[in-house]
Design a protein around this nucleic acid. Structure first.
Lengths: 113, 113
DNA sequence: TCTATATTTCTATAATTATCAAAATATGAA
DNA sequence: TTCATATTTTGATAATTATAGAAATATAGA
């Protein structure tokens, strides 16, 4: 439940939810591909570099994003497996089964929560 | 998106998530039935009345719970239709379709978001 | 090496959120 | 009415979170 709260806290903030949504749209299931550079995110959302870095750290701490370095840039990428686990908890424990069903996350490589 | 953030903020707190989960377990689809009295929740979770009231107000403000008076007690009840709407947004916008599918909320009376 | 670029960490400050005692409000029963 | 019960509001305080300038770190290229 602590993990769920960390994830919800991370997403319960306008800038961070916007970051995460941008990363989801830029996602690729392939290792080492997809995601966005920190600077690209900062520019798109119009937030100061230090502020963006603060929020990216929050998202990373919650396990919702991972990063890799590419030259001078650091590329952030959504961890959909983690998001899937959070959704699973919410649907099962907080929706009483009445709100929907998770088609158990297909065993794609990025979906091993 | 503001609505989603309000809901996530409401659930991203240990006491409130515990309250909501208790209310989901005590849910009934019937109008005027199900839910828990504020005092009952306070006792179960061991939180001071004023603190509980603060958190219930947050959940109500986010639209995740509704209340009705019964005698001296005020009964709080989870609004699963609202929760369903939040889940729908997350699955569609934040999971890239890769994390699960919503079986579109069946048109039960409590599920008209 | 030196320089420019990309990002993070440090630091201070502002803003928001959580807690709970005490007082206020609403209801039902005697 | 008056009293006891259930809950909320007020108000004060503590704790957490958000913002961003300035300095520090890491990389690539000249």
């Amino acid at each position: 439940m602590k993990l769920t709260i960390d994830a919800l806290s991370a997403l319960a903030q306008e800038t961070r939810l916007a970051i995460f949504r941008a990363l989801v749209r830029a996602h690729s299931p392939d290792e080492g591909r997809g995601g966005l550079a920190a600077g690209e995110i900062a520019e798109r959302l119009g937030v100061a570099p230090a502020t963006l870095s603060f929020h990216l750290k929050e998202l990373a701490h919650a396990g919702l994003v991972v990063s890799r370095r590419e030259g001078r840039s650091i590329i952030y990428k959504a961890d959909l497996g983690r998001m899937s686990a959070v959704m699973g908890f919410l649907l099962e424990d907080c929706c009483n089964g009445a709100c929907g069903t998770v088609a158990a996350c297909a065993p794609q490589e990025e979906c091993v929560s």
